[in-house]
């Protein structure tokens, strides 16, 4: 496998700035090692697919960069607003509703909290907005997860654990994405 083919595979689906930097680093390395570009470089450079996977952990892919550059469709915003209003509605109506405390009420309420958390899955590409949305979700969801008697009638432990896991996963995913954006942008704007 020559250098050009190795680089094509190692930088597959990565944006232009990242590809340029990796190609330059690698070709400099081969030059220093006295290895011609047409030689078989796999023994020296290793498996290009493994390197590609490493690079994708560090940088955004072309598709992700493109998606982040797009304005999210309005329905995503409305979905979040709807879920938030539904949770707020349950909280406001709880003292007055004859259904409060019954199984169906608890299930619907749990479902609306779940919808709110899931709706934040489609967060804004801008970091400030992402943090705002996540903070909002956490502020709404956390008090509901710790011992609210609205959840009487449904087994609260599995629900609490599931929602906590979902929130933690979203937080972790977005922190990881954020780090990849911060690494990719300087190379793309250089």
């Amino acid at each position: 496998m020559n250098a050009a083919l190795w680089l094509t595979r190692a930088t597959q689906n990565l944006p232009a700035g990242v590809t340029t930097r990796v190609s330059r680093d690698t070709l400099d390395h081969l030059h220093d090692a006295g290895l011609p570009e047409h030689a078989d470089v796999k023994a020296v450079l290793g498996d290009p697919e493994a390197v590609n996977a490493d690079l994708k952990r560090l940088y955004l892919t072309v598709r992700e960069s493109h998606r982040l550059g797009m304005t999210p469709p309005p329905w995503q915003g409305w979905l979040r607003v709807g879920a938030l209003l539904s949770v707020a509605g349950f909280l406001l109506l709880e003292p007055h509703s004859p259904l409060a405390g019954q199984g169906v009420w608890s299930v619907l309420f749990g479902a609306s909290v779940l919808l709110l958390v899931l709706a934040t899955a489609r967060l804004h590409p801008v970091r400030r907005d992402r943090w705002r949305d996540l903070t909002l979700s956490l502020i709404v969801a956390l008090p509901l997860l710790v011992g609210n008697d609205l959840l009487a009638g449904v087994p609260t432990l599995p629900l609490t654990l599931t929602l906590t896991l979902l929130i933690s996963l979203r937080l972790s995913t977005h922190m990881h994405l954020d780090a990849r954006i911060r690494r990719t942008l300087p190379l793309e704007t250089a």
Partner: peptide, 15 residues
Amino acid sequence: AREGTLYPALHALEA
């Protein structure tokens, strides 16, 4: 160090 894995590691340390 497999040279291919060296550069992603360098990029990560730099980031």
